[in-house]
Design a binder for these strands. Sequence first.
DNA 1: TTTTATAGTTGCATTTCGAAACCGTGGGCG
DNA 2: CGCCCACGGTTTCGAAATGCAACTATAAAA
Lengths: 170, 170
Amino acid sequence: MRWESVGETTCSVARALSVVGERWTMLILREAFLGRRRFDEFQARTGVARNILSARLRALVRNGIFERIENAPPGDHVQYWLTAKGLDLYPILVAMLRWGDKWMACEGGPPVELVHRECGYKTRPTLVCSHCGSKIDARTTTPVIRAIPAQRRGGASKARTRLNPPRRSE
Amino acid sequence: MRWESVGETTCSVARALSVVGERWTMLILREAFLGRRRFDEFQARTGVARNILSARLRALVRNGIFERIENAPPGDHVQYWLTAKGLDLYPILVAMLRWGDKWMACEGGPPVELVHRECGYKTRPTLVCSHCGSKIDARTTTPVIRAIPAQRRGGASKARTRLNPPRRSE
DNA sequence: TTTTATAGTTGCATTTCGAAACCGTGGGCG
DNA sequence: CGCCCACGGTTTCGAAATGCAACTATAAAA
């Protein structure tokens, strides 16, 4: 299977990855969420090669993540603005930030912290249940398959695996 | 800049991406969170080529995401178990799932839903502020840079960009 | 003994990436 | 006018990653 066809799956994760799953794309988006909007800014901040950046930006515009604005003041430069669809990628970025902070920490603590402007305090955004409001993790959540996602091979006989969420001993 | 060196950045997002940012990796993890543990299961479910899968699994084990267990019952097969570090990637996957559900929806609604076992209800996990508990998004949060992340070029004079979070008119 | 299942590895054609050079437009300026 | 620079790319080309199929190794089953 080629990577380009993961977006044609019925899986929402795969579809999301078809938009943001390429190398550099999330780093470009990181810069966008930090307020950068120009080609050369993205290039200098992320270190991505210019041709790759060009291709990624084009794809992101095509996928409705960025809006490309020419002749934008000040200076009439080209600018890339996050759309509502793009802004909505924020939780993915934050989830990566939090995991990186926890498991790949630099010496001296996380280089970026978030402030929640509504309450004014530093925040470490957390995933909670939309129903009961308590914290969510892999152990306390069960996936329920609704549509059968196109079995690749027919072999669903005795080797059928259970769809239980993972539970380790530790 | 080569992709392999993004993990040496001080940015937590980049460091996270150095572990889960390769093609196929998140799809392999999706299957892991669905309870798959075996090589051929991952292969059949994701459609990734076997050599690529082999390389990804090796890297994930090296990075402490999977634990590789040989001679595991039943059947003495090799199994890949998520470690605590791996299980903690769940919010990233869920964030992608939620975004895909919202913006790349299939006809007929999302193919997978989540049930929160603690409360017993279907849940759509949401990111909230760890301090005040209200919903978080890109508009209501401000990043604060703590350590200066190694400027690539010196040009931080008048062209210095503001570090404001993006705000669109729409 | 032969077949099957599992977990890979190998070889090779194709695709993508990465670095640097180049290009086109527009402005500032002497 | 003629020159230089900033910006936003594109082009070129060698290097690396990917994708597919075939092959291997090991152990169990038939």
